[in-house]
Every structure is written in C-alpha cells, then in structure tokens.
Nucleic acid binder design. Sequence first.
DNA 1: ACATGTATGTTACACGTGTAACATTGTCAA
DNA 2: TTGACAATGTTACACGTGTAACATACATGT
Lengths: 123, 123
Amino acid sequence: MSQPNRTELIILKILWEEAPLSARELQEKVGPKLDWSFSTTRTTLSRMVEKSILKTEKKHGVRVYLPAQSKARTLSTVMKDFFESVLEIDGPVPTAAFYESKMLTREEWDELNQYLNGEQDRD
Amino acid sequence: MSQPNRTELIILKILWEEAPLSARELQEKVGPKLDWSFSTTRTTLSRMVEKSILKTEKKHGVRVYLPAQSKARTLSTVMKDFFESVLEIDGPVPTAAFYESKMLTREEWDELNQYLNGEQDRD
DNA sequence: ACATGTATGTTACACGTGTAACATTGTCAA
DNA sequence: TTGACAATGTTACACGTGTAACATACATGT
C-alpha cells in the first residue's frame, strides 16, 4: 500500500469522517470545492483502490468506498516520511506539538504516537 | 519558484552546506548514495535551475550551482505546505518542537519562524 | 596543432498524477 | 417492457519526475 498523495488525502479525510460513501456522494463533497468533474473523482477513487488505499464493496447495488487504514495509521506514515526526509528527524517525533490540530482527537493522537514512537515517549 | 520535491531537497541540503558546487562535485556527493549516474544528477540540476530553485554561474570556466533561497526560507514554505495540507493547521506552527532537528541552527529556526509565524509567537 | 578527457547540450522513455470524455450496463418508474 | 437516468468500464492526454544515453564543444598537456 503506497502513500496517499495530496489529492488522495483530501478524499481520505472525508472518508475517515463518514464511510462508506459512493462515488456520487464523494463527488458532491469534493467536486465543487476542488473543481473536479465526476469523472475526475471517479478516476481518483479507482486509483486509490488499485493502490489499496481504499477498499470498496457493493452496498444496495452501488459501489461504495472506505479507507483501508485508520486515520492515525495513515497519518503516522505520512508524518514519519516528512520528518525523516525533510527535517531528518529519526528519533521520536514530538507529536504533542500538534494536539491542537483538528485533524485528530486526543485518542487518535495517542494511537498515532504509538505507531510513530512506539511505547516510550508518551505524553 | 516552485517547491522542491524530495530529490531536489537532497541536492539543496548539500548546497546549503557548501555552495557553489559544480555538477561533478555534486555528483561525487550524491551519486553513490542515491545510486545516480552523472547524467541523472545533471538533469536534476538543470530542472532545478529552470524552476529557479537554484542559481548558476560560471566559476573558473565551469558552471556551478547555488541555492536561490536560504534554508530557512525554503523549509518554511515546505513546512507550511505540509502542515496546512496534511494536518490542516492554519495558525502558528509550533516550530520549537523541532529545534532538535540537526537541519537548522537555532538562528535558522528563528528565521524560519519569522517566515512561518510572523512577528508573534517567538519563543 | 592535436588528441584526449571533461563539460555542456540535447533527447528519451516509463511511470505517476491531474484532469477528463466516451461507451456500455444496470435499474426503476411509468 | 421500455425509456431515462444513474453507475460503471474504458480510454486519453499533458505534465512532472526518475532515470539515463548520445552528441558536441571546450580546455589542457605534449
């Protein structure tokens, strides 16, 4: 499972809040904001499924999409990659600095911190 | 001037430490590590000049390369982009959390913080 | 002046990504 | 059952990026 790129992250963020959603439902949420056509949304979804970033299933005869991994899991990977490659921080990442981000609840930060920093360095 | 991508950042990091360097000198530093051929290094350099990420001049009859912007300036942009698009942090970024990164000196962090957070929120 | 080895210019090609259209199949109401 | 609209499948195309080869120009020692 490769990492999501920026546009894929936008889709993921929506699905982490409410999943599963159909392509049509997703389009209603991102289309206007990103100025995407329905086709574009669908292509992006297909590619995310190919990459195993999303899972998909049939619900009431319609294909719906849902994230393959939790928000904390995914973001921990994205953050680790960023901190390593950009800031060259190899050891523990000071996640506490970001608790104010609305992206994750305190519990999710704890989970993310587990992935990133293992057992130690908690709070 | 567009943002550097990951490989371009590798080049920049070297040039921030010692610049200007010729393509050959750069190659000696990154080639083995990245497993790049001289051609690859040169192509990357050319593209960085096109994008105005690097400046170039003739020194003793040889073309040399140097960063167009300071480390702090560049990293502030990269970090801002990351925090906004991934963590959706719009306000001040808690740069203090990263002082331990060897990437920047304390002075450079101060400079970066200026770019990122303006006058307020200084230490 | 010429050869030989660097330096530079030009071109290539595959894959990812943004962005989308066109074609076909399925479903539900009348 | 058929028509209309929604869902899904297939294909496209340009640009960025990783990765590099080939060709040409230049400089330096003999």
